[in-house]
Amino acid sequence: MDFFPHRHLLGIKGLTEQDITLLLDRADEAVKISRQREKKTSTLRGLTQINLFFEASTRTQSSFELAGKRLGADVMNMSVSNSSVKKGETLIDTAMTLNAMHPDVLVVRHSSAGAAALLAQKVSCSVVNAGDGQHEHPTQALLDALTIRRAKGKLSRIIVAICGDVLHSRVARSNILLLNQMGARVRVVAPATLLPSGIADMGAEVYHSMEEGLKDADVVMMLRLQRERMAGSFVPSVREYFRYYGLDAEKLKAAKEDALVMHPGPMNRGVEIASEIADGPQSVIEQQVEMGVAVRMAVMETLLLSQNQGPRA
């Protein structure tokens, strides 16, 4: 087994090209398992996985749950509603309680940036970041990369346009890091109100027009725009946002003819993406969901098995 020198997956930052390639290769194998009739293996039999979700999530949580179960682990879900969580101390208290139950991996989602890293310092098992605030969402970036690699055969030297609410998006940050690490060209396309300051130095070319930003793109990655950010605060209105930044057939024409259309979900149809595009031939949004399970299987397997075999990071 190839060596993976990390105990946790807290972010894409810190992963080398080799690390990422290893995870993606292994995820390719996991896809095969998911497509068999017999989907259960015994790779992680006897190990315990706890999904600790401080932020409501249906798809990510079920994706992690399924990944663990297909590897034969015992999976427990803990949804901690935001209202009952106060601040740092409670987060750590919860973690220490769970730690006493001897889990082998903790999958954590939290609304605060850095929450997963904080937990990782306190518990004795592996931690997988399933999204921390506006910081990172590494498994999403990995599943996006897997989807692209399977469709395009490579990640290097392709042009990926990430469009929409980059400012609030952990998905965008993880994707920018991963795609740069793999040698892709990353663009961000958004109104300036939805871009973080210093974006030009984050490894992305900045565009404010879809037509220019999508020109010759191999991949168009749309981001979700939260409802509360539409009415006059970050953008004036839904109709103006859709007019300038919503992906429709007209705007998609600027991209390459075989460009992939991606979205991390859940989608706002008619806000950031037109239905005809979301359901159209270029859309790989459903494949992304399938790859999500595979990538999470690969991550869990890699972390837990290298923990037993390799030296600890």
Binding site: A231, G232, S233, P236, R239, E240, R243, Y244
Partner: peptide
């Protein structure tokens, strides 16, 4: 003074 208008449109 609270919500911006549709500058583009």
């Amino acid at each position: 003074g609270e919500e911006m208008t549709e500058f583009g449109l």
